[in-house]
Amino acid sequence: MAKDQKKLEYVLRIADNALILGQRLSEWCGHGPVLEEDIALSNISLDYFGQASHLLKYAAEIEEAGNDEDHLAFHRDDTEFRNLLMVELPNGDYAFTIARQFFFSVWYQLFLEGLLKSQDEFLRGFAEKSLKEVKYHVQHASDWVIRMGDGTEESRRRIIQAFADLADFIPECFTTDELDLYAIQHGWGPDASHLKESWQKNVAAVCTEAGLEMPAEGWGQRGGKIGKHTEYLGFILAEMQYLQRAHPGAKW
């Protein structure tokens, strides 16, 4: 156990969202619908990896177990990951990937804006640096949601389906458990439950332009933040961690 186990867990919750979503998006590399989008998604994926790397390095310092960021990325098991369930879902079609980028990025931007006021100097700096990246992610995803909603019959059908498929995974973004409340009390970060109103407003603005209904209020799959994941995470880790597990410390 780390001296500050709560802080460690809190930082992992932020880091693992970036790490797992980055890994997911990297799967599009070489498979994007058009070359330009292929590069755009790979860029976004690399933004997430950069963020994950910073945060995991910080987490390793908090842990004080002599590990580095790579160890935390490649040698933790699925139950030790703290990401939201949404980010580990399979990419699906491009509409699903874009819809997830949209819902997640709008939330993530609001979260980072709250993190700007963190009492934790590292997290404050992290938020400031990452916000620039995430603002672009929001714009990229929003534009595509509008294009798909207001595009062809097929694109519209697909984006509506993606919204429906993701609805159950949105509420988890706004949950606050005991650890979150502790973090809020200590001024580490914003109260996620307070982000919901702004999230709905921002999402609604894009939906209006796209001619889409807001995603339904799902009943809310949850568990990612305490290490209870979908069956998909294990497969992600199998691929992501394989090399470091087979050849610990390998460098190239």
């Binding site: 070359l35 330009e36 294009r147």
Partner: peptide
């Protein structure tokens, strides 16, 4: 050069590419 559906997408794609 690059392909894009309209001017806005062209600027964003140019940014990424």
């Amino acid at each position: 050069s690059l392909h894009a559906a309209d001017a806005k997408m062209a600027v964003e794609n140019a940014r990424d590419v």
